[in-house]
Nucleic acid binder design. Structure first.
Lengths: 217, 217
DNA sequence: TTCGATATTATGTGCAGACATAATATGAGT
DNA sequence: ACTCATATTATGTCTGCACATAATATCGAA
């Protein structure tokens, strides 16, 4: 890493093989292997069998964003967390949902609309559906007590997830819920999770103005 | 992973030790160790010496977002990339910059204002300053040909980077540049990179409406 | 010269064993 | 009952060796 930093090895350069490095640093090849593997994991090196290891030419900066449960997020900001389930009803998947998530028309869904608060101030507004065919047990949970988010995190395995981050203008309803001007720019996260081939849940999270997501590389 | 998925091992559970697992799976402890380490890396397990390994109770979803050079981003969307340097001038760091980035008042900065395009449509507007005390060579580069972004990526090592994602309303100037209504919600990325203790560059990237950042876990 | 089989080589993955380290458990002493 | 030193233990890290695999290089035959 230092040698990449001080441009001893420049982007695109082929660096010495594992055996050679092991000799130079007086350690075992396995140790060099792990070091190189970890550097490749964070995108600093490109490795190919037989071809050797090169300093990444296009260091696609890989930023690891940690996406905590909202409660943790709020508490990490030193605020008190609370939330309200605004609405809750059974749904049938729309044509779009059916197609995008591979849901049968008959799949029973639970719809949830939740407002998350930090110190009584609105923090984020959540729209969510849950696939009851996969997680019927959630009907037995008291979702007023433990948010659906946390219930799922704790009780449902995860195999695949997809996040989309974007920006959008506050709708009339959102501006009222989040206590902000209409058309205010809001940070939006769409998240969906699958269990093997079954869509479990999809959420649209709209954060109150001022929210930002920070990450360090 | 399967045992976590099918809830054989539930969140919070203490799983068997490495030696035991090695025996069960008929492999070496090193192999178990690597498997468990990788699962801990993606946030599925919590490990502590002597205390043992537990299934993560709060699986902080760690999403790895890849932040490519804008050109790659545009090209990945199947568009032609081009950009214009709108303005360029020498700057002295403001009091805020001095404090936040630890810059001396005398540090020479290069300011750059760039518009990135996808198929002639505005894609993102970039405001950037570069620390000339650290990278004086950039003055010799033709930044009309290769964007400052790419020049830096190729020529400058980075030891530390910080990203902040947020949303903001288009200012009058931005709405004109990005060809969108005033107050449109825009996705904003702030990025700054350090080389050891020296701030190299800081960028504010404002993406045209409709931009979204997608990531898979 | 071109094609294709073969040899070479760097990384990928695995094994068995060792010591280091941090956190816990234990037990002696007050 | 409490404190503190000691023993225990699970993970962390490393060594040295071995074989697998993919990509390249080489070389002989057509």
């Amino acid at each position: 890493m230092r040698r990449i930093s001080d441009r001893h090895w420049r982007p695109g350069d082929l660096i010495p093989g594992e055996v050679e490095l092991a000799e130079e640093f007086g350690c075992a090849r396995a140790t060099v292997n792990r070091a190189l593997r970890e550097l490749a994991d964070i995108g600093l090196l490109d490795r190919k069998r037989k071809a050797g290891t090169r300093v990444a030419l296009n260091p696609v900066r890989k930023a690891t964003v940690e996406i905590p449960v909202i409660r943790q997020d709020v508490e990490a900001r030193g605020k008190d967390y609370s939330f309200d389930v605004l609405d809750r009803k059974d749904l049938a998947p729309s044509a779009i949902l059916q197609q995008h998530y591979g849901l049968a028309a008959s799949t029973p869904l639970l719809g949830l609309w939740t407002l998350h608060r930090a110190d009584t101030y609105p923090f984020a507004y959540e729209e969510r559906w849950i696939n009851l065919a996969v997680v019927p047990e959630i009907l037995d949970a008291d979702l007023e007590l433990l948010s659906a988010n946390e219930w799922l995190v704790r009780n449902m395995p995860l195999s695949r997830g997809e996040f989309t981050f974007s920006a959008g203008n506050a709708t009339a309803a959102e501006s009222e819920l989040l206590n902000c001007p209409e058309d205010a720019a809001l940070f939006i996260v769409n998240r969906s999770t699958w269990m093997v081939d079954d869509a479990i849940t999809a959420v649209r999270l709209v954060y109150a103005p001022g929210f930002s997501m920070k990450t360090v590389v």
